[in-house]
């Protein structure tokens, strides 16, 4: 846990708030998957755009992600990232006993993709886990944080992240990243949850949290 911008109090307050929020996301992941989930140590850090991409792996590695934007008292972007194979297997766990997942859709050039049911299951997974995190953050305000409709996407890591980072770094060089990774027990599925609020949101959240903790 390293925050290098703002006062020590500001850093400690935000770190504590985001670590709690990531714990809620982990709880939601466990509840939704119905399987043993190992949630690894969360990190809250100020990072340059290029570092955020590196933290999530190589920019030209394909990942399966769920994107959820958020607005209201807090504005920013959230992502759940999995390997494409991990996403398919996770979707299979969620769909087990409901419907046969069927074969994966593979395009004419061999591109990686998710079938409609797999994409839907993944979207729901992202929606539940990210919303749990946002609900925790929204508890500091009188109005709720509003998430967008989740979007499942299979793409290059850099391509997914540069769009959201570009929206955040127009006026600043660094963004706060709150991330955690997890492993689904017997399936060895690794994933990452990434929360990226904009700079004004951080100020509002730090002020609200400081009042709340007094």
């Amino acid at each position: 846990m390293t925050l290098t911008a703002g006062s020590a109090t500001w850093q400690e307050t935000l770190s504590t708030v985001f670590l709690h929020a990531l714990e809620r996301a982990g709880d939601a992941l466990v509840a939704m998957s119905g399987h043993e989930v190992l949630v690894k140590a969360a990190q809250v850090r100020m990072r340059r755009a290029a570092d955020v991409i590196d933290d999530c792996g190589s920019p030209d590695v394909v990942v399966a992600g769920v994107y959820v934007g958020f607005s209201g008292p807090l504005r920013g972007h959230a992502l759940l990232l999995l390997t494409p194979d991990g996403a398919r297997r996770f979707a299979g766990l969620l769909l087990d006993g409901v419907v046969a997942p069927g074969p994966s859709i593979v395009g004419p050039n061999g591109e990686l993709a998710l079938g409609p049911l797999q994409a839907s299951a993944l979207q729901e997974l992202g929606n539940v886990t990210i919303s749990a995190c946002l609900n925790e953050l929204g508890a500091y305000f009188d109005e709720p944080v509003q998430p967008t409709v989740p979007q499942a996407i299979v793409e290059l890591t850099g391509a997914i992240l540069d769009a959201v980072l570009a929206d955040l770094v127009a006026d600043v060089d660094q963004v706060l990243t709150a991330r955690t990774s997890f492993t689904i027990g017997g399936e060895s599925i690794d994933g990452t949850i990434l929360i990226l609020p904009d700079a004004p949101s951080l100020e509002r959240l730090a002020q609200a949290a400081a009042v709340s903790h007094r």
Binding site: A49, A50, I53, S58, L156, G158, I160, D162, A166
Partner: peptide, 24 residues
């Protein structure tokens, strides 16, 4: 060339690369 970076070369055996462009 990472995000926001610039590369150049006059070596004909060289390749200049930008990885993972989305909106960039």
């Amino acid at each position: 060339a990472g995000i926001g970076e610039l590369v150049s070369s006059a070596d004909p055996d060289h390749t200049l690369v930008c990885y993972g462009l989305g909106s960039c």
